[in-house]
Design a protein around this nucleic acid. Structure first.
Lengths: 232, 232
DNA sequence: CCCCGATCTGACACGGCGTCATGACCCTAG
DNA sequence: CTAGGGTCATGACGCCGTGTCAGATCGGGG
């Protein structure tokens, strides 16, 4: 109980390493690891990811990660307070890549080009999810379980796209194409929810014999209409 | 290892109790419990639900359920092979209530009435989720983790609504309101995904200051347009 | 080649899991 | 009302993963 502030210290006491905000200052027990330490830390992270690619989050044990990394469980705890913490770092890395989605919203939405923009956005979402499925699965999961760390992460990564989309909706609203009583942010949020959930459950759709083309088409159509308020 | 067929037996050997398909023949070790047994089983289920209402699924321990029910852990294992099994029964009960959603699709979709039908469907979804949030959370969770039992359950409950919606889309397609190259089932699936995900993350939306009214409005608008292919 | 901090790990206490054998309970036939 | 037999509950146990030490090991600068 006396040592209960270890994790806290790791967070509150940057130990002078705060200079580089990009490198998640990895906390051992308050110190910043050297070259060798960094390597093991990375190896542990990689192994965590590999395990996640294979089995479920629920069955992700520290022992297994350690074994796969060829170290002892104790070593794992040297770098992360628990499994969640390790996964959180992975999630952070994935969240950064979500910015690529925001860029897809920047494009022509008026007229025929709008359909293409919508389609590109849809493709981007499906691809992004495909590339990072295992980690995103956990983010979704942990968020739903009420974990604030993951929730904030999720909000941060989807916030940008949502705001961008909401912006576009707002334009078409001033245009009188979208009814004035509609809340642009709500609309954008709902669309993002649709994209995220569809992407997450894609293989569930294929189970019903629905191919990716058809999915893209339906999603694009709905996105385009909802955003622009216009028939394509 | 000789006894490894215990659970199997529970499933494959109805023991003559198959007459009532509504009563999930509860398996102890192959026998069907009597009055007292039924009672404890129910109590365990109820306590499981209560625990689920409070804490996360990950932290749901057999010990805690048993303690709350005022029995020993061993008793729990008399009725369920593991925690998942108990939750699955609860999920089954919730899934049955999903039929109420299908009924909401039956209604006038043409003209002004269609907007109301869409709105009622949206409301139904949000309410259904609100009423059964904790259990549905686990269904979503377990499905995403690849658990087939939960996945099938999820498919079964959402399948009905999706098919019904797809039916309506098909009508408007023959009407030439919806483009012929669109797959009705894909479209319906995408809409259901949107509704489910939005309902599941509703409190995430409120965090952004988006009220339920706005959410309903945006959802209804998108549903109506996508289904009917017509401006409201 | 030695030294010292950085890094790793064996050993341990703890707690939940799942499984028995056994005992308590209840109902009913005699 | 009481013994017998099935129903139900549980104490006790072995197993395994967690998280935490103290102490062993490593490896690069002096």
């Amino acid at each position: 109980m006396v040592d209960d502030d270890r994790h806290l210290r790791a967070v509150t006491d940057p130990g002078g390493g705060q200079a580089d905000p990009a490198a998640e200052l990895p906390a051992v027990d308050g110190r910043v690891p050297g070259r060798r330490g960094q390597a093991t830390r990375r190896k542990l992270l990689d192994c965590t990811k590999e395990m996640l690619d294979q089995g479920s989050y629920r069955d992700l044990k520290v022992v297994d990660i350690a074994r796969r990394a060829g170290t002892s469980p104790a070593t794992f705890y040297q770098y992360f307070p628990d499994v969640e913490a390790a996964v959180l770092v992975l999630a952070e890395e994935v969240a950064v890549r979500a910015t690529q989605l925001t860029e897809l919203v920047d494009g022509e939405w008026k007229g025929r080009g709008g359909v293409d923009t919508a389609r590109r956005l849809v493709r981007g979402f499906l691809d992004y999810w495909e590339d990072n499925r295992p980690v995103l699965r956990v983010v979704e999961l942990a968020t739903e379980e009420g974990d604030l760390r993951f929730r904030n992460l999720r909000v941060r990564s989807l916030n940008a796209v949502t705001r961008a989309l909401s912006e576009v909706v707002g334009q078409f609203q001033r245009n009188a194409s979208v009814p004035s009583e509609i809340d642009p942010m709500a609309t954008a949020g709902v669309l993002v929810a649709m994209l995220a959930h569809t992407a997450a459950h894609r293989y569930g759709f294929e189970f019903w014999g629905i191919r990716r083309d058809a999915l893209e088409a339906s999603l694009s159509r709905t996105v385009y209409w909802t955003v622009t308020g216009q028939k394509q």
